[in-house]
Design a protein around this nucleic acid. Structure first.
Lengths: 216, 216
DNA sequence: ACCGCTCCGAACCGTACCGTACGGTTCACC
DNA sequence: GGTGAACCGTACGGTACGGTTCGGAGCGGT
C-alpha cells in the first residue's frame, strides 16, 4: 500500500478525505455500479472498464479492494450535507419548521438508493474484516447526523420549546417516529409504497407525535 | 433441482416447511456458521465438513446454494414463536402487560445474533438474484409479526383501550418507538450498550410512550 | 530531442468456491 | 442373506475475481 492509498486509520472523521477530481469520477462510477448491481457488481475489473482506468491505478490509489469500498463510503458521506441551523430557534414556529425540515432531510437521505446501497454494502461486510466499513459508515454517517440532531434538540430545550432529560434518548425517539420500520423494509428490497414517498407528510406526522411526547 | 429440493415458489407462508430431523441438524449447523462468520463463512464444502454430511446430500436436499440459504431463513423463521394472545384483553392492565410482553419479545428476536445474521445475509443479497431471500425474510418474518401485532392492537381498540385510525400506522409507530435506531446500529456491527440490553425496560418505555399517543 | 512521470490496456497467476461425479458404506426391508 | 436407496467422503472441472506485472502511449519539463 502506497502513501497515497486511502487508509481508514489515517483519516479523521472530521477531516474530509481529499480525492483528486479523477479519483472522484472513478468513485462516482463505483457508486453507480454499486447502486444498481449490489456489491457483487463492483469488481475491480468491472470498475476499471466502466471508469476507463486501469486496475493498476485503482490499486495505487486505494490500496486494495477494501480500501476502494471504504473510499466509496467516505466519498458519498462527504457529499451529504444537512441544512444549517443558524438562528433556527428564533421562535417556536420556525424552530418546529426547522425540526421538520431536518427530519425530512433525514428521510431523504436514508431512503435514497445511494444510501440504501451503501448501507447494504456495509451491513453485508459487517461480520468479516474486523468490520471496517460498518464503523466507517457509523462514524461518518450516523454519528455525524445524531450529533447535529442532538445539538438542534438541545437548542430547543434551552429555549424552552422542548422538555426531555436525555438528548440522545429524545433523538432516538424522533428517529424511530420518523423511520419506523420503513428503512429495514427498503434495505430488504421491498418497494416503497406510495404513501412512503411523501417525505414531507411523514416528517410532519413524526414531528407532530414527537411534540406530543416532548413538547414543552 | 429435484422434487425434494426446497423451492420458495412452492412453499406457502402459512405452511411451515417440513425438514427432516437430519436436515434440521444440518440447517442448525449452517445457522451457527452464519452467525459467527458471516455469509462468506457458509460454504457448501465447509457446511458439509461441519455437519458431517456430503455436498451431494446438500444439493439433493436444497437444490443449490441459494436454496440452502432460503432453507436456513425458512427454518429459523419457523423456530420463532410469539406469545399467544388468548384472552389478553380481559382488562386494561393485562392488555397493556400483553402489549409490553409482545414488544419485549420483538426486541428479543430482532436483537438476537441469529436474527441479525439472517438480516445481514438477506440484506447483502437483496439486490442480486431477484431478491428471493429478502422477500422470504419479509414474508416469513416481518409480515408475520406485523399481522400478529395489528390483530393485537385491533383487539385493544375494539375493547376501547386504544384509539387510532390505521392499525398499520399504529403498529409502525409502536415498532419505531421500540426499535429506534438500535437495529440498524447492531446490523452495522456496533456493540449493544449496557442500557440497550435491558429489553424489559426498553419495552416498558416504548409502550408508555405509545399509550401517550394512542391510549384511549 | 531526451527524460521522467503518470496512466491505460492487457495478459497473467493464484485462490476460492460452486456444482458434479464416483467409489465405498450403512441401513431398512424383503 | 440379498437388494436397493440413501448417504458419506473426496476429488475434479469450470469459473470468477483479486492482485501483479509489463509494454507502451501521452505529456510536461529541461
Amino acid at each position: 500500500m502506497t502513501a497515497a492509498a486511502f487508509d481508514i486509520a489515517t483519516s479523521r472523521p472530521d477531516a474530509a478525505p481529499e480525492f483528486s477530481p479523477r479519483q472522484q469520477v472513478v468513485l462516482q462510477h463505483a457508486l453507480t455500479l454499486l447502486v444498481d448491481g449490489g456489491e457483487k457488481a463492483l469488481t475491480t475489473a468491472g470498475l476499471a472498464r466502466t471508469a476507463s482506468c486501469s486496475k493498476e491505478s485503482l490499486y495505487k490509489w486505494f490500496g486494495d479492494r477494501d480500501g476502494l469500498l471504504a473510499a466509496v463510503v467516505a466519498y458519498q458521506a462527504s457529499q451529504v450535507q444537512f441544512p444549517s441551523e443558524a438562528g433556527a430557534t428564533a421562535d417556536a414556529a420556525t424552530f418546529r419548521a426547522h425540526v421538520t425540515a431536518f427530519v425530512e432531510a433525514l428521510l431523504e437521505v436514508l431512503f435514497s438508493e445511494t444510501s440504501l446501497a451503501l448501507n447494504r454494502l456495509s451491513i453485508g461486510q459487517s461480520n468479516t474484516n474486523s468490520n471496517r466499513l460498518g464503523q466507517l459508515l457509523l462514524v461518518r454517517g450516523k454519528h455525524m447526523i445524531s450529533t447535529r440532531a442532538r445539538a438542534m434538540l438541545d437548542s430547543g430545550r434551552r429555549h424552552g420549546l422542548l422538555r426531555f432529560d436525555d438528548s440522545n434518548d429524545a433523538y432516538q425517539v424522533l428517529y424511530g417516529l420518523a423511520i419506523r420500520d420503513v428503512h429495514i423494509r427498503l434495505l430488504l428490497g421491498e418497494a416503497a409504497g406510495t404513501a412512503e414517498k411523501d417525505l414531507n407528510s411523514q416528517a410532519r406526522t413524526a414531528v407532530d407525535r414527537f411534540y406530543r411526547l416532548f413538547g414543552a
